[in-house]
Amino acid sequence: MTVGENDELLAERLATAAGAILLDLRTRGGLDGKALGKAGDEQANAMLCREIRTARPADALLSEEEKDNVARCGQSRVWIVDPLDGTREYGEGRDDWAVHVALAIDGIATVGAVALPGLGVTLTSGAPVALPPANQPLRMLVSRTRPAAEAVFVADKLGAELVAMGSAGAKAMAVVRGEADIYLHTGGQYEWDNCAPVAVAQAAGLHVSRVDGSPIRYNNPDTYLPDLLICRKELAGAVLRLAAEYSPAR
């Protein structure tokens, strides 16, 4: 624990440190694929949970890799972490995976840090980056393995290029970094999949919402979140309208 460390600096430090653990584990060799992903999840999670409980003992904690305690719902401050977002990509030796450390206050993603260890970068809500100009043509991020039909429909209507990428954190941060313009996801996620990315994206001045335009709330008894939109603000109206127009019968 660092004396006087605020929430933003704590999130950044822990996300970066977890990324270093994961890189070191992969570099050492001896494990690959699912076994490497499982070991990485366990080691990064152990450190994150230990450090958060030490630094913020009064706060609640929700982690993908820990048994949930719904008593957290009665607390204002809850740390929401994903020790390894993109386990498949990590195990395959790719760079499009991430570490998420977030703090939700009264249900709002308030503090976030997303480490992209394969790129040597950690993006945080405490130090938002300036958005570069939009891409021409527009670029829309989709899953490597299961592109959402809604996203394909919207991309076609906007004349946007589809860009396949791994983890939710990597995709969200690609919009923050200006490598893409739209991340529309309708395949379902959990709170740990997008709380930190949402906090970072909001701080960078991006539009963040559910696909129906409603706000995203965290620290719910049921941690499932059906959909997510992160995009440049000037595109939000068109994307939301087109998403509403989509029908599976088309």
Rank of each mutant, 00 (worst) to 15 (best):
G91C: 03
E179Y: 07
R28H: 12
W79A: 00
G29A: 13
D95V: 13
D106W: 01
M165D: 06
M47R: 14
N194S: 11
E179G: 07
G74E: 10
V175D: 02
G120A: 11
C231Y: 06
V111R: 02
G126V: 01
S143R: 08
D193C: 07
V99T: 06
Y246G: 03
I52T: 12
D181W: 11
A44C: 09
G187M: 10
H185V: 04
V175Q: 05
L31W: 09
V154Q: 10
D96P: 00
R94D: 11
R13N: 04
P83F: 07
A20P: 00
Y183K: 05
A170C: 12
A58P: 02
L119E: 15
L22H: 06
T110R: 11
R146H: 14
V152M: 03
M47C: 08
I105P: 01
V99E: 06
R72P: 01
S76P: 03
V208W: 00
A170R: 01
G205P: 06
E64C: 08
Y246R: 04
T87P: 07
S247P: 05
A203K: 09
G169A: 09
E51Y: 05
L25I: 12
W79F: 06
P137L: 03
L14M: 04
Q136A: 15
L229D: 11
A170D: 05
R72D: 04
A15E: 07
N135W: 05
T186N: 13
R177W: 08
P147R: 09
G93M: 10
L141E: 05
A172F: 04
A236M: 15
V163D: 04
E51D: 13
N69E: 14
I21W: 05
A20G: 14
E8D: 15
S167V: 07
E64M: 08
C73Q: 06
E42G: 07
A196P: 10
L141C: 12
A160G: 00
G187H: 12
E5T: 10
N6E: 09
G4C: 04
V239Q: 05
A109P: 06
Y90H: 15
T110P: 01
A180Y: 03
A134K: 12
